Computed example of a mutant assay.
Amino acid sequence: MKKSPISKLTLESRTFYVKRDDLIDPYLAGNKYRKLYTLLKTPSHKFNKIISYGGTQSNAMLAIAAMCAEKDWEFVYYTKPIGETQKSENHGNFFIAKNLGMLHVEVDYEFYKDFIASIRMNLDDKTYIVDQGGATEEARAGLEVLAQEIREHDLHVKSLATPSGTGTTALFLALSLPEYKVYTTPCVGDVTYLKEQMSAFHAIPENLIFLEPEKKYHFAKPYPEFLHVQKKLLEAGIEFDLLYAPGMWKCLLEQTDEEIMYIHSGGVTGNESMLQRYKQKGIYPF
């Protein structure tokens, strides 16, 4: 498994360190690379098809597509219906994933939930399902590798930060590094919902600290303050994703004061599509 370097970043007169998991691979990078560790180490002959589901700009979708292209596995991805505009786009995660060989299947809104619940019922031994966002118990192995890398860097910093969708990365990282404080913030729903998601896998450890955003943010919706944070990060020298990172950085700047290592989740390939949404809303970049 490839190791990622650490960069130093100065933001609002504070020093941060960034674990550059975004540099591992153009598509199979960030926390999705860690979550797919077990599958990446699996011999290609064990499976011939991977199934997953979720949103059409998902970083996990793109990472799985890249993995399947490398392994020569068929990749079938289920979503709710999408518009013709998105289908015809020539940029973004959905476009790249399709070019990598992903088979996209739309399921009607009224049947989607029941369909996803049923896809495990008729599997054969050569088919494997990756739950939305890569939220599986198998993800723990890759996060333990990340934890070992962080220890080997041997920095004086003892606080880490990573944003949460399902919360899998933050949870398993905190469990693997009990001597560190791990900050996270919910990017989908609120802290209560995030804790419920995490608790399905494991009891939440004491070293996992939840930072509640100052107001409720809807996932993937354009917000001027997020674009403002993104501008500061770019000026500091590192590009982060526009879906998860701005909310996490905003909370870190407002609610913490120590030196922190931020785990870069990757996902910057989706920024072009997200910036188009900002433009459509009249919130022009910078």
Results as ranks from 00 to 15, higher is better:
residue 156 H to M: 13
residue 212 E to L: 04
residue 245 A to T: 05
residue 131 D to M: 02
residue 139 A to H: 09
residue 132 Q to P: 01
residue 196 E to L: 01
residue 156 H to Y: 13
residue 274 M to T: 13
residue 101 G to S: 13
residue 227 L to G: 07
residue 34 R to F: 04
residue 81 P to N: 10
residue 163 P to W: 00
residue 9 L to K: 08
residue 116 I to R: 06
residue 91 H to L: 12
residue 136 T to I: 15
residue 111 F to W: 04
residue 125 D to W: 06
residue 184 T to D: 03
residue 36 L to S: 01
residue 187 C to R: 00
residue 133 G to E: 07
residue 33 Y to K: 07
residue 190 D to I: 12
residue 90 N to Q: 15
residue 180 Y to S: 10
residue 220 A to Q: 12
residue 227 L to Y: 07
residue 59 N to L: 04
residue 255 Q to S: 07
residue 152 E to T: 15
residue 141 A to N: 06
residue 280 Q to Y: 09
residue 50 I to K: 06
residue 250 K to R: 11
residue 194 L to W: 01
residue 254 E to R: 05
residue 193 Y to G: 10
residue 157 V to F: 01
residue 26 P to V: 04
residue 37 Y to Q: 12
residue 96 I to N: 10
residue 30 G to Q: 05
residue 278 Y to M: 10
residue 224 P to W: 06
residue 251 C to E: 02
residue 204 I to N: 09
residue 284 Y to F: 13
residue 280 Q to C: 08
residue 58 S to R: 01
residue 220 A to N: 14
residue 117 A to V: 05
residue 14 R to F: 03
residue 142 G to M: 12
residue 147 A to I: 04
residue 32 K to N: 10
residue 16 F to G: 10
residue 56 T to Y: 11
residue 130 V to Q: 08
residue 149 E to H: 00
residue 267 G to D: 09
residue 128 Y to E: 13
residue 67 M to T: 14
residue 79 T to W: 10
residue 84 E to H: 08
residue 215 K to L: 02
residue 253 L to T: 05
residue 160 L to D: 11
residue 49 K to W: 02
residue 123 L to N: 01
residue 205 P to H: 10
residue 3 K to V: 12
residue 74 E to L: 12
residue 9 L to W: 07
residue 41 K to S: 15
residue 233 L to V: 04
residue 273 S to M: 09
residue 164 S to C: 05
residue 87 K to S: 13
residue 77 Y to A: 04
residue 132 Q to V: 11
residue 178 P to D: 11
residue 232 K to L: 12
residue 277 R to A: 15
residue 98 K to S: 14
residue 32 K to Q: 11
residue 23 L to D: 13
residue 274 M to R: 13
residue 274 M to F: 15
residue 192 T to L: 09
residue 65 A to L: 04
residue 57 Q to F: 15
residue 5 P to N: 10
residue 183 Y to G: 02
residue 153 H to Y: 14
residue 219 F to K: 10
residue 163 P to M: 00
residue 64 I to V: 14
residue 19 K to I: 04
residue 223 Y to C: 03
residue 144 E to A: 05
residue 116 I to W: 07
residue 162 T to R: 06
residue 262 Y to A: 03
